[in-house]
Computed example of a mutant assay.
Amino acid sequence: MNNDETSSGKPVRHLLGLSGGKDSSALAIYLRDRVPEMEYFFADTGAELPETLEYIDMLEDYLGKRIVRLNAERDFDYYLKLHNNYLPSPKQRWCTVNLKLVPFEQFVGSDSVVSYIAIRADEPTRSGYISSKTNIKTKFPFKEDGLDKQDIIDILVSSGLGLPEYYNWRSRSGCYFCFFQRQDEWLGLRQNHPDLFEKAKQYEKTDPETGKAYTWNQAGTLEEIIDKAQNSKNKMTKNRKANKLIDNFANDDDEDDDGCLICTL
C-alpha cells in the first residue's frame, strides 16, 4: 500500500476547493503538475459576481481539467426561504454552512481525502476550514513551502491569468452581497454592477410589526451605507490612488474573516 491508497485498496482523493479568489486560484496553478490527480470544485452560491464566474472558467481552461460545480439546485435563495427570509450575518453564517461547508463534506462522502488549503506562509493566525471528519486530512502547501502574498501574485501573473477583475474595487471573492464588505466595496458594487446592488437592496426589509430593520450591515441600510461611503470617497480615493490593485492587498481585511475563510481564499 502506498500513500495514495487506503487499506481497502481504494485511492485517496486529492481535493482543492476554489473560490475565485487569488489564493486558491494560485494554489491550483501551483499544484497542477505536482498533484496531477487533483480534483477541483467550486461551491457556487448562485450569488457570485460575474467576474468570479468568468475567472473560474478561465482557470478551468488553464488547468485542463473540469472544475466540479456544487449547489447546482440549491442556491442562496433556497436556503434563505428555509431560514424564514432572515439574512445571514457575522453571527449567523448559515450561508457559509449550507453553501460551502455542507456541500464540501457531501462531495467528499466517506472517501479518504486530502484537502489542500491555500493559507500562505505570511498568515500565521489563519487556519482555514478544517473538517472534524477523520477521513479528511488537510495540507497547506504554501505554508510548507514558505510562499507569501507576493509569491501568490507572481504565480497568477506568470500564468497569464492575472488577477480577477473584481480586485479593482473589492478585496475579496464571495457573494456580491457579502456582509463582510466594507462601505467602499458596497459603493464599488453599485458603480460596477448597479443591477446586483439593486438586487441586494431588495433583500433588505423592515418588520412591519416591530419596525426592526433586517439589513446586510449593522451600520444601516445599503442606501445609508452608500451615503457614508460617498461622503468619504474623495479621502479614500486619495489614500488608495497609489496602491489601487496589487499593492492594495497589503491593506485588505479579508484576513480577519477566518469564519468565512472558505469563501474568501
Rank of each mutant, 00 (worst) to 15 (best):
E223I: 06
T221R: 05
E105Y: 05
Y78V: 12
D77S: 13
L82Y: 06
F180Y: 10
V97P: 00
N248I: 05
A229W: 01
E144R: 12
L31R: 03
R32K: 15
L27G: 02
K228D: 03
N98G: 03
D154K: 08
I117S: 03
K65L: 09
D195R: 07
N2I: 10
D253H: 15
D151F: 08
K10I: 00
L265D: 06
D122C: 03
Q183L: 14
E105C: 07
P11G: 05
V68F: 06
T210R: 09
V97S: 06
D148Y: 07
M1V: 15
G46E: 08
A213C: 13
I155A: 00
G259R: 08
P36C: 06
R13K: 15
Y62P: 04
I226K: 07
G109N: 02
D247W: 08
N248A: 11
D148L: 15
P36Q: 06
K241M: 13
R74N: 13
S110T: 05
D247R: 12
S173Y: 02
N84F: 12
N231G: 12
K137Y: 03
M58R: 06
G174T: 00
E5I: 11
T215G: 12
R126V: 00
H83S: 12
N71M: 10
S171C: 09
N85F: 13
S24N: 06
T134R: 07
W216G: 00
D148Q: 10
D253R: 15
K91W: 10
N192G: 09
N239D: 15
A219Q: 13
H14A: 09
P88F: 00
L87M: 12
K238Y: 08
Q191H: 07
G46W: 09
E51L: 14
G128F: 07
C260R: 04
Y129P: 03
G146C: 08
Y167K: 14
